[in-house]
Design a protein around this nucleic acid. Sequence first.
RNA 1: GCGCCUAUAGCUCAGUGGAUCAGAGCGCCGGCCUCCGGAGCCGGGUGCGCAGGUUCGAGUCCUGCUAGGCGCACCA
Length: 563
Amino acid sequence: MVSYNIAEKIRVELEEMIRNSIRGAQEEGELPPFDVPVVPIEASRDRSHGDFATTVALTLARSARMAPRAIATILAKRISAPCGYVERVEVAGPGFINFFLNRVWLEETLIMIEDAGTAYGTSDFGGGARIQIEFVSANPTGPMNVVNARAGAVGDTLANIFAAAGYQVSREYYINDAGNQVDVLGKSVELRYRQLLGEPVELSPECYQGDYITDLARRALDERGRDIASMSDDERRNFFKSYAVAEILRMQRESLRNFGVEFDVWFSEKTLEDSGADKQVMEILDSKGLLYEKDGAIWFKSTAFGDDKDRVVVKRDGKYTYLLRDLAYHKNKLDRGFDRIIDIWGPDHHGYVARTKAGVQALGYPQDALEVLLLQLVTLYSHGEQVRMSKRAGEFITMDELIQEVGKDAARYFFVMRNIDSHLDFDMELAKEQSQENPVYYIQYAHARLSSIMRQAAELGVKYVPAREANLGLLAEDAEVELIKKLAAFPDEIIAAARDRAPNRIAKYALDLAGMFHSFYNSYRVLSDDRELTAARLVLANATRIVLRNLLGILGVSAPERM
RNA sequence: GCGCCUAUAGCUCAGUGGAUCAGAGCGCCGGCCUCCGGAGCCGGGUGCGCAGGUUCGAGUCCUGCUAGGCGCACCA
């Protein structure tokens, strides 16, 4: 795979320079013998500290038994700059080695972006490892809520990030279509159906009360008429159960699709039951001596794998617990050959993390095969007031309503803009705002502006000169140099977001990049009488637009050419 | 009682494997369109919850505390 990561290329080169310096200094006795370490090279945060820097001298101080600054000086002296990308090297502070680069890497960055196009930002960081990410997996008992929406945006964006970072990604949705809740669902719809027929029945308190239940009952009545009523009790119960689940699932899938979220696999819990997969898990645990009976139930010795207490897997009534079924599911996932499986759960499920991981280990998989991300909840605000919701009473804003209200683009961006560990306050007015206060519009506006410039250029008959042929040395203003550096950092930003499972980093990076462009735009004209400068700036504008478009693609937000 | 998450500017939040970070936006005040889209830009200032610890160096790591959120089922 072609690498489009200039920063990586530079890091490799700089690291090699330093390692050679260390070896050379050791051979000549300037440094004592020790194993040559991995040399960390990082982009400098402050311009006055060069473009890249290493702290290797500081970390070496102990093993070399020398002052870090002395080590840095010895190493820096051995680097013959200018050379390659390096203009000059300096020692600073307690022992940092700062690298000041020449313009070559900036110009290569622009050429690379133009070559790569939509592929710019991708890398082979993941090495093609197979990663599966399961998210949303809402109960099929009602419409999607805003927390499901956040999970959808976060999961899908993360999946996009993984794909860009060089992983093979599979998106999966677990359908909780077995167990008590779907029985209750079926019963709820059945009772509403009978009410529609005029029967004097009441919904019991555990039933789902929302209007959608009545809608489902009415639809069943429209489609199937009264013949459902003449079924046997068992038949009718099963009919409503499967009818309701299928219909709700269809609605959920539609909601997600409207939100730009599509899954590779929809996995039914019921199939685990039907195939005896849960029973098989019991046999494995039993054969390993990890089961025991107590108080009429069967327990899994999860404490043997770090859980704080053992867990029931077969209830006194002989039924399997959710945990057991979930272990069967995770076994199924791991048996499909993924190198890593990631679950996104709500914070209310955090108690299940330790026991599920214990189970995965007990079944013979590596400790880190399963990774659970706990995504914090969402509070909607409207006109500064918290929007109160009660699912039991059927009073809540659904995912569909929210998206209809604020739009898909704003919703997707808002849901990922915070750290997943942080509770999200979602300001509906801000999401709808069409001004700089709204980060989504701010970013999209930058893209539209760039598109407009490219259009203008075409209309004026200004021919686009490819980066290789343009005089990129003319892009020397601070605003231009900073912008190019930001563009150069894009592949690393994706890698960092993948590594940290942090989609918010991409949202932030996009905002920063848009800001840098707007700033540049206000100070300098792209299209001018100076043909050479115009050509160079068009290359920069085009590169910026490519990166913004790729970023918005990862976020699942549209990149409009006009607004 | 136990567990997970959170605590950074008046507000909402960034701060990537410690160092060469205290930052952005909003709000407030003042500026910028004979010029590619003003849905834009520029300038103005205050802060890492508290207490210890590790280190040459701590918003960042460790411990304890305080405050807030969410959990702690033989429910799913």
